[in-house]
Each structure stands twice: as structure tokens, then as C-alpha cells.
């Protein structure tokens, strides 16, 4: 568990104990009415395992839990999601019109199913899919969404980072339906087990598609996915060129079985693909090990990685801000130190 979550839970715990007799019966009465719809992601009929984090958050809320999945061919994915323990029902809608998750018709679809199910909470990951879709749903339901939460304190109180993670806000929602997106690194995804949720077909309003999916270009990689990798090695401007980035960072990543990330400077200079950017405007990661190579540590970058369990930094500038957050730092020329490190890890 990550520091922010742990602290929030501890705080909530101590308060709950103090107020236990008065609160518990009311909380119980409320929790019976609480019902959550977790919006799951899929691609080509395959369940995005990371989206099962929404179930983890739903379990923290208590109450009944349903899952929702829609796309061209989703029955296998629905069956897989149904194996998550504690989930009562998976609602699926099979229609190719929803395959690409276009918010213009997906939002009305979801709103119909939310209204039919009478849910109090709608949860999705704060991913490209969730970010595009959920605010549109919130607007259609006339509710103020709570984005990118890192902890749940009660059915109406949530914790979320603001100002690139430089402040942590605890907010209470007065809306009757809470639309929430969650930070995946703060809620470890549930794994399908021996659960047996009912699989039910949802309503399909067949809303008009106002936009059309044209194409996609996804960076192919055999390395672990950046957002969920246990280890991440990240390169910055210090790498100097794309060739150097590839020559230095890729062997390092492979020696550790790590995903590759990059700072905005490295991405803007063309050393690495956009999708690898770690930071406030890129991906937020919280791996066991984050290794920053040639990265100075601007606040926008730290926003994306400072919840990592162990941070290691290699930088030639002993005063670089990255050393203020790194658990272990090595001052030196990355072109020398990184290959040496890679070799040592490989041979050990």
C-alpha cells in the first residue's frame, strides 16, 4: 500500500473508532442502499485486467457491486470479470458500435444502464478511456465527478491529489450519484477467482454515433506495461539522443525486467515515444523500483512517480532535485554508470 493511502486509512480508522456507537447503525442502514457500477474496459473482446481496480475501489465502499462491459464481442470478457469474488452481476452489451468506446454513444448507453440499475456510485479507472467517458456521463447525470482518487474515506468522502500531487485534498460530495475515477496505482486490481456473478444483458439505447473511429497507432512493446510494471526505468534529457536512449535504457530495462518510461524533456526531444511519458501530463506510476536516469526531477515529473516504493537516481548533477526524493542516488556520468550497472545486474 502507498503512503497516501495508508495515512488516509489510518486517519479514517482512528476517527471511526472514536465515533463508533453513534455512527455504526446509520452507516449500516446506508450501506444497504449503496450500489456500485464498475465500468470495465476491453479491447478486441479481451478484458483489460487493470480496469478490475474499479472492483477493488467498489469493495472499499461496501454495498452491492455490479460490473459493466460493452463492445463488439464481450461475452468471454464478461465471463472472466464474473469470476471476481464479491461481484453480484456483470452487465454486458454486445454491439460493435461500442467497440472503440466512443463517448458520444457510450455515454448514453451507460447512463441508461445506470438509471435502470439505480446505482449510487459509478467507478472507472482514470485512464484515457475513463477520462474521456466519465465526465460526459457525469454531465448527463448532472453530477460533479471526482477525478483520480487515491483513497476512499466513506461513501461520500474521497481523497485526491491536486496541483501535480503537491497537495492532497479530501472532498465530500453532496451529489446523489457519485461518479468517480480512480488512480490505478492506489487500488491494486482484483484478480478473477472463483466468483460466479450473474451475467446479464444490459439495455442498449442505440444512440447515434456522432463521431467515427478512424485508426489507431499503438506503440508495440514486449516489455511490461508502464502503468502496471513492478519496475520502471526512466530516461531524461541526459540521454542526449534517441540512439543513446535506446542503447542505454533498453538493455537496462531488460536486465531488470522493467518497463521503460521517459521524462517530458526526453519525449519532446524525440528520444522516446509520447506514450512513455511519466508525470502530471503523462502516466502516473508507482512501481516497486523506479530508476531515474538523466532526469533532473521537475515537479511535473515527480507528480508521476513519487509514490514509487524505492526510487533510485543516476545523474551527473549532485544538486539535481531528483536526489531529494531518491532513496539511493549515484552521482556520475550515466553513459558510464548505467552500462556498468546493467552488466552487474545481468551477471548477478
Amino acid at each position: 500500500m502507498f503512503p497516501a493511502v495508508r495515512r488516509a486509512v489510518a486517519w479514517h480508522g482512528s476517527r471511526a473508532i472514536g465515533a463508533a456507537p453513534a455512527l455504526s447503525s446509520r452507516a449500516f442502514a446506508k450501506s444497504r442502499l449503496l450500489s456500485t457500477l464498475a465500468v470495465l474496459e476491453q479491447r478486441d473482446g479481451k478484458l483489460n485486467a487493470g480496469s478490475l481496480s474499479a472492483f477493488t475501489a467498489a469493495k472499499k465502499l461496501g454495498g452491492t457491486i455490479h460490473g459493466f462491459i460493452a463492445g463488439g464481442s464481450v461475452s468471454a470478457a464478461a465471463q472472466e470479470a464474473a469470476k471476481v469474488e464479491g461481484v453480484e452481476k456483470i452487465i454486458f452489451v454486445e454491439n460493435a458500435a461500442y467497440e472503440k468506446g466512443l463517448p458520444e454513444n457510450y455515454a448514453p448507453l451507460l447512463v441508461e444502464n445506470i438509471k435502470k440499475g439505480g446505482y449510487t456510485h459509478i467507478i472507472s479507472g482514470h485512464t484515457a478511456f475513463g477520462k474521456s467517458l466519465m465526465p460526459r456521463i457525469a454531465a448527463l447525470l448532472d453530477t460533479q465527478q471526482i477525478s483520480d482518487i487515491t483513497a476512499i474515506e466513506s461513501e461520500s468522502t474521497f481523497v485526491r491529489p491536486i496541483y501535480a500531487g503537491n497537495a492532497i485534498a479530501t472532498v465530500e460530495s453532496s451529489d446523489s450519484v457519485k461518479v468517480v475515477t480512480i488512480r490505478g496505482t492506489a487500488f491494486a486490481a482484483e484478480t478473477p477467482g472463483s466468483g460466479s456473478a450473474v451475467i446479464d444483458e444490459g439495455v442498449d439505447p442505440k444512440a447515434e454515433a456522432l463521431s467515427e473511429w478512424v485508426s489507431e497507432e499503438l506503440a508495440k512493446s514486449d516489455r511490461p506495461d508502464l502503468a502496471t510494471a513492478k519496475r520502471v526505468v526512466s530516461g531524461g534529457r541526459g540521454l542526449k539522443s534517441k540512439e543513446d536512449f535506446d542503447n542505454i535504457m533498453l538493455p537496462l530495462a531488460d536486465s531488470l525486467g522493467a518497463a521503460v518510461g521517459a521524462s517530458r524533456a526526453a519525449v519532446d526531444s524525440g528520444y522516446a515515444d509520447n506514450s512513455l511519458q511519466v508525470g502530471q501530463t503523462g502516466k502516473v506510476v508507482a512501481p516497486e523500483l523506479y530508476m531515474a536516469v538523466g532526469i533532473s526531477g521537475a515537479i511535473q515529473h515527480l507528480a508521476g512517480m513519487k509514490d514509487s516504493k524505492v526510487i533510485a537516481a543516476i545523474n551527473k548533477d549532485a544538486d539535481a532535485p531528483i536526489f531529494q526524493v531518491a532513496d539511493v542516488g549515484l552521482v556520475g556520468d550515466l553513459f558510464e554508470k548505467v552500462p556498468e550497472f546493467t552488466e552487474k545486474v545481468r551477471s548477478s
Binding site: 503512503p3 503537491n166 472532498v171 513519487k306 532513496d327 549515484l330
Partner: peptide, 23 residues
């Protein structure tokens, strides 16, 4: 619709030591 109950500093990370070499 949202009431801010409190805003806090994120838990501070204590920067660790620097090491001399790759070993």
C-alpha cells in the same frame, strides 16, 4: 457539489543516501 474538508501536504519522502559507485 464538492466540499473540501481539508488539504494536506503529501507525505514527505525522505531522500536517502548517495552511494559512491555502481557496486
Amino acid at each position: 457539489r464538492l466540499k473540501v474538508l481539508k488539504v494536506t501536504e503529501p507525505p514527505a519522502r525522505k531522500g536517502g543516501d548517495k552511494v559512491e559507485d555502481v557496486g
